[in-house]
């Protein structure tokens, strides 16, 4: 049988049904190319999409598998509400502070007139430090600012200051924040660097030329232009902190009531004994993450119009 698709041209002027048939064959052939992506999508669905969706489905079921909204009512329990609030608070705090720190460093190396070598060093280091999250990071902070940590001991023995008497505690909210910021700042540097590089020096010069001061330039041009990228980056940092499990687990051993810790405890079955509530917790997290990624994408599109 001759291969119809090989000679199929969509715009032949033959009799209608033949032209339609050829058009169809051509379409089929073109659609068939998508089949080449099948292995990838099968994998992704099997090990990411379906497992995640099954949690969403599970959050609407009770132990027998019947439809229920009870799990979401349980989400309103004070300890769960407070864990969401603490996690949001921690993520927002470290996203804003880490974002600010990252912005200042990125500004210093891209517009601040520092030597080129420093720039590439900071970029490399940011790559390392943003990957240096999890257990080792927690250890580094315990060794530094823990009760027997190097700096804690140093301050006590040399200056006679006891950090822990001043109210500081590494295993508290602020201690955890300080630790999270360690990977938030370099991530911010990596994300915001391209946006800062996209700021044309001619904008600054044009505004100076028209009589604007440095403050007026930042107020009218610099900050408005950067704002979408900045907020997008901070949202990404927020999500990054919200989903982080390893650092919190290693640092506090599950003492702080964070959502990821709660979910982890649920999986291991050692605190709560209601898997469907666990699914609802996970669902809540997915919603927050989805909302932030949508906001991120929207802001990115806004800023890519301006900064190419």
């Amino acid at each position: 049988m001759p291969d119809i698709s090989a000679q199929g041209r969509p715009h032949t002027t033959d009799a209608g049904h033949i032209s339609f048939f050829r058009l169809y064959a051509h379409r089929i052939r073109r659609q068939a190319r998508w089949l080449g992506l099948a292995p990838f999508f099968i994998f992704l669905f099997a090990f990411m999409i379906i497992p995640a969706s099954s949690l969403i489905v599970g959050s609407f079921q009770d132990n027998t598998g019947a439809l229920t909204f009870d799990n979401f009512i349980h989400l309103l329990k004070p300890n769960i509400v407070s864990s969401y609030l603490i996690t949001i608070n921690l993520s927002a705090t470290t996203a804003v502070l880490g974002g600010l720190g990252g912005l200042l460093i990125a500004y210093a190396i891209s517009l601040g007139g520092l030597p080129q070598g420093i720039r590439s060093f900071v970029s490399t280091f940011s790559g390392v430090a943003s990957n240096f999250a999890g257990v080792p990071l927690a250890f580094a902070f315990i060794s530094t600012l823990g009760r027997a940590g190097f700096i804690t001991v140093l301050l006590r023995s040399i200056f006679g200051i006891d950090l822990y008497d001043t109210g500081f505690n590494l295993y508290s909210f602020w201690g955890l924040s300080l630790t999270y910021i360690y990977f938030q700042i370099p991530l911010m540097v990596l994300i915001i660097q391209p946006a800062l590089d996209g700021m044309k020096k001619e904008w600054r010069e044009a505004s100076e030329n028209l009589g604007a001061s440095a403050f007026q330039y930042w107020f009218h041009v610099g900050i408005p232009v950067l704002l979408p990228s900045l907020s997008a980056a901070v949202i990404l940092l927020f999500g990054n902190a919200f989903g982080a499990y390893a650092t919190a687990y290693a640092l506090t051993g599950g003492l702080i009531n964070l959502v990821p810790i709660l979910i982890g405890a649920q999986i291991r079955g050692n605190v709560l004994h209601d898997p469907n509530l666990g699914y609802a917790l996970a669902f809540g997290m997915i919603i927050i993450m989805t909302a932030s990624i949508i906001a991120y994408l929207w802001l990115q599109r806004l800023s890519s119009r301006w900064i190419k």
Binding site: P51, S53, S54, G239, I263, G264, I267, A282, I293
Partner: peptide, 14 residues
């Protein structure tokens, strides 16, 4: 990013 490791692990186990 939307499905961090903690969620992924949970889903895989389920």
């Amino acid at each position: 990013f939307v499905i961090p490791p903690i969620i992924l692990a949970f889903g895989l186990i389920r």
